[in-house]
Simulated assay, not measured.
Amino acid sequence: MDLLYAFLIGGAICLFGQLLLDIVKLTPISMLIVLVLVGVVLDGFGLYEHLIALAGAGATVPLTGFGYSLVHGAMEGGTNGLFFITDGVFEIASITIVFSILFSVGAAVLFKPKGVA
């Protein structure tokens, strides 16, 4: 059942993103921002923890999970004081940020962009 919940909830999050692109006609970067902000807001109200408990990786892998990790880290770091907020953000979200940069550089090295002959 865990795999089914992960598939259904992760698929629903991705479907929501696709609907933002197709029906609302958002640009891809706007859709990314909306999905991250949805994760931020859901974690701010304490709802994303329940979604992760139910779906596991189905809730943490999409972009909403990145928003969750940013805010959750900031809230955990903020319990130690105002100056520790950034420590919490980078402690939880650092793996996502590092791999995003590495895969972006790898894709730029391996593939030729459009418009370049």
Rank of each mutant, 00 (worst) to 15 (best):
S69C: 11
I52H: 02
K114P: 09
F111N: 09
F84R: 06
F84S: 12
H50N: 13
Y5M: 12
C14I: 14
G39Q: 01
G46L: 02
G46S: 04
D43I: 04
E76W: 10
T79C: 09
A74T: 05
A108Q: 13
T79Y: 09
V61P: 06
T86E: 13
L19E: 10
F16R: 09
G10M: 01
G65D: 00
V71G: 06
T60L: 06
S100L: 13
F7Y: 15
H72T: 10
I9P: 08
S100V: 14
I33S: 06
L4S: 09
F16C: 12
M31K: 11
A57M: 11
A6L: 05
P28S: 04
L102R: 04
V116G: 05
N80W: 11
T86D: 13
I33N: 04
G58P: 05
K25V: 13
S100C: 13
I85R: 00
G65S: 02
L110I: 13
I13P: 03
G115P: 01
V98P: 00
A12C: 03
L54N: 07
T86Q: 12
A6C: 05
L19W: 11
G106S: 08
F90I: 15
S69T: 13
I33F: 08
G115R: 03
I85H: 00
V40E: 04
L42R: 01
G44A: 01
E49K: 15
L42G: 02
F103L: 11
I97E: 04
L21Y: 08
G78W: 00
M75W: 10
L51M: 12
G46Y: 02
G56P: 05
